[in-house]
Design a protein around this nucleic acid. Structure first.
Lengths: 231, 231
DNA sequence: CTGTTGCATTTGTATGAGTATATCGGCAAG
DNA sequence: CTTGCCGATATACTCATACAAATGCAACAG
């Protein structure tokens, strides 16, 4: 049933995480695609495909004679879903987590306001079910966190804006990692349901202003929890 | 000097634009990697690498026995720089352009406010030079549009938030295409410099509220122009 | 010192053989 | 008739090797 990870995926993930965790610095070289692939015990084909994946995500660039080098951080597609997953597979940079929260603070309140104006009945349903699942399982369980993500995802979907919705996986990664991090550090989490319900009710009532404020409050509380964890 | 486009890049661009312009619909099949590559007159190696690129950007997925299929639109990384470039290489969907503008309306005012608080002297300098170049060349010239992009890019950079800054290429594509579109339809553009200067001066003065309002005004005017073009 | 030209090195492309995997269809049990 | 198992088979995946193309560097000519 599950899809076994292909070799090129494994290589891409391995090298990608190595770059994102700083084991390879911008400018570092991967010269010698024959040596590299043999060193990994694979043929050139999957190695090259892994390189193509990383190039597609902006992490590296390769030209004949010049070799393959890690690009400058500013050229990385940090919001790419795979990049985020690779970033969060280790202990991510605290500064980057703060940046992601700040981005959520920009996107999600505005999205909540738009969602309040445009949401369909089906999307309201999705949100309601997600919150029910979240209440039932709690954030300690995988299913609970998945439900949390579904809720935030549904809010972005309800904006009926594809560009905004495509940030869902990025935001979702931030949501997921934040709660995981709290769990990892054994912080007794305050029940997050009230804030979520406030957002939900405002969107259901088509009250854009209230939805914005409720989402801002939700993020403020989440950020406080996270900051407490770091401190 | 210029880098000749590699075959796998060309294939990826070709198939990517075909998907983004709707010539291939979600669910459509690319089965037969041998046939497909021969039909394109290339070997399987670069064809497969092109497929890996498209997979990395979420446009397609491929599994043994099942074949290679175009994924659902919701799984595409619409804000990926290449995806945007491919999208804008043709006549992009008007709805998507509106979505991108809405996203800019969410991101850029907030970014301008943050930039006002955090900008460095060097970043102020970059903005000033960009505006000077913009005034000198005008938006009809490539150099003028490049300067316009540099300005908006500098604003996002000045937030000192990597997650926000990584949206620069996305926003930049929107900026660039918008002005190109106006040119293409021979709309006599109003001089956009005053709004830009207003944003710049607010950021220089570290006035976050004024920067936010000035950017909102800039976007409102730009949107009006674009809407008039469509009408 | 400057421009140019040839060369060596690295990535890019071609091709054919063989492997692994997941879908599909049939078969058996319920 | 439905459900679950299970093997045959088409498909992508990997390997190995050979050759082509591009480009940065150094030697060289002016």
């Amino acid at each position: 049933m599950g899809k076994a990870e292909r070799i090129h995926q494994a290589i891409a993930r391995s090298l990608g995480t190595a770059i994102l965790t700083g084991k390879y610095q911008p400018g570092d070289s991967f010269e010698g695609e024959i040596e590299q692939s043999l060193a990994l015990g694979v043929s050139r084909t999957p190695y090259r495909e892994a390189i193509r994946i990383l190039v597609a995500k902006g992490l590296i660039e390769s030209r004949p004679r010049a070799g393959t080098h890690v690009t400058q951080r500013s050229r990385w597609n940090l919001l790419d879903p795979d990049i985020l997953a690779w970033t969060f597979s280790g202990e991510p940079d605290q500064a980057f987590v703060r940046d992601l929260f700040e981005l959520r603070g920009i996107i999600e309140p505005a999205a909540a306001a738009l969602a309040a104006q445009r949401r369909t009945a089906a999307q309201i349903d999705t949100m309601r079910q997600a919150l029910a699942a979240m209440q039932h399982h709690g954030l300690a369980a995988d299913e609970g966190r998945a439900a949390d993500q579904r809720f935030h995802h549904a809010v972005l979907e309800a904006t009926h804006n594809e560009a905004v919705a495509s940030l869902a996986s990025s935001v979702g990664a931030a949501v997921d990692w934040t709660t995981r991090f709290k769990q990892r550090h054994h912080v007794l989490p305050r029940d997050p349901l009230p804030e979520h319900l406030a957002v939900f009710h405002a969107i259901e009532a088509s009250d854009a202003g209230a939805a914005r404020k409720a989402m801002e409050e939700l993020l403020r509380l989440a950020l406080d929890d996270t900051a407490a964890t770091f401190a």
